[in-house]
Design a binder for these strands. Structure first.
Lengths: 228, 228
DNA sequence: TTCATACTTCGATGCTAGCCGAAGCATGAG
DNA sequence: CTCATGCTTCGGCTAGCATCGAAGTATGAA
């Protein structure tokens, strides 16, 4: 008799182009309204509503009511990680939509992966953190060293708040453009928001791309090794 | 304009129940004929043939002609890793088919993940290899240490042959039952085949389960730490 | 050659699921 | 209250695809 988990249901959920577009849009980490999602998917509001309820029933997304808007977002990191690994696979096999566009180089350099930094910069950051023994571990089981605790606290990151959360502090996420790991988890999220708060980097509107300012580049390089 | 890879096509390929069943069957690592796959999917031969050609066009599987049989198998490790991570996600969300059967405990203990060992035993093996500093690395970038080279050679593993291959020697794979990493890559494959060759373990017929013999348990525990 | 097995291709059928128009709620603004 | 906005629900339409019967191709056995 059939053993193990059922991958067909999830595949089917992701397998529809409209739903896949919505999920990809939500990978920006922003919470989006049904109307916005309908726009990115190129369908009417009614159809989008139907898709969204299916995605919600499947546990891939959740919604927050706020006034007369409903904001949809991915339920948790796991969904983001799964989508990123699917993208990695798809990119490796040449499944691209509309042939790499002009924004592509920017995306490969630095982008948002649900809530943390991905792309060349994301991978370089994790490499540096490991080289400097801020983080150790193998596989998906990463951990902060004592020295790492100090370094992160110096950067103004509230580790106590992060460790209180249920989700892991450090976690790997396979980068689809670099085909190597970058840092996810609550620490990855905290670092990205620090970059944005300090004005080192800004999000491109309507895109997953992250653009570093000249000063931001310098600061980033100083912390995590030389730039390209 | 739409950026990045297209996950919908792959999702759709995996999203059909018949195709998902076939892929799950191929996760056993065995090459199976069209007739066998039709059987496990519960469809006629014609339908199976149509599905198989779609999966092949999508690059998920390949075929080898041998006499009047055609043997189908997953194209490479990447497909196996993707499917395993999908299973992990599905298992975590309660997407199970036919409610965990009697074989489930055996699967969780030790099973084949395409070509390497997974389940409790797989995870314990990687943990031990890292603890004994046979393998180091972070994220998905694992590497054998010098001491590791010696240990593996002592076990009779031809590392020269493994490193000649294009695919990575060491690699992590997220275990769906344990939700932690186990060892994939050509070394992971070599270790599993060593266990089978030495008679330490045997494959259950028509299943992904791997059953260790009493002697095999002892030998495994001696190498990779105590059993449960 | 003749027959059997393994599989593919063709053609027809039937069902599902995506899609949108229209109507129905809910919330907020004036 | 009245109107506008954001979204859901309902109903019907349609396209696509999974499915299978039947016929066709390839390989091997006798």
């Amino acid at each position: 008799m059939k053993e193990g988990p059922d991958i067909a249901q999830i595949g089917a959920l992701i397998g529809d182009p409209a739903r896949a577009n919505m999920l990809t849009a939500l990978m920006s980490g922003k919470a989006l309204t049904a109307t916005e999602l309908a726009g990115t998917a190129g369908i009417t509001l009614q159809t989008a509503s139907s898709h969204l309820s299916k995605l919600e029933a499947g546990g891939l997304i959740g919604q927050r009511k706020q006034g007369r808007h409903r904001y949809f977002s991915l339920t948790d990191d796991d969904v983001g990680l799964l989508l990123e690994s699917l993208m990695g696979f798809a990119a490796g096999r040449g499944f691209t939509r509309h042939r790499t566009g002009p924004k592509d180089p920017a995306l490969r350099k630095a982008r948002v992966c649900y809530n943390h930094l991905a792309g060349d910069y994301g991978v370089r950051m994790l490499d540096s953190l490991v080289a400097e023994e801020v983080i150790t571990g193998t596989g998906d089981d990463l951990a902060l060293t004592d020295a790492g605790h100090r370094r992160m606290t110096e950067l103004g990151i509230d580790l106590a708040a992060l460790t209180k959360q249920r989700r892991p502090v450090c976690r790997t996420c396979l980068d689809w453009s670099e085909r190597r790991s970058h840092l996810a988890g609550s620490l990855g999220e905290a670092l990205l928001s620090m970059f944005l708060e300090k004005g080192w980097a800004k999000r491109e509107p309507d895109s997953r791309a992250v653009r570093f300012t000249p000063n931001g580049e310098k600061a980033f390089s100083k912390l995590f090794g030389m730039p390209g």
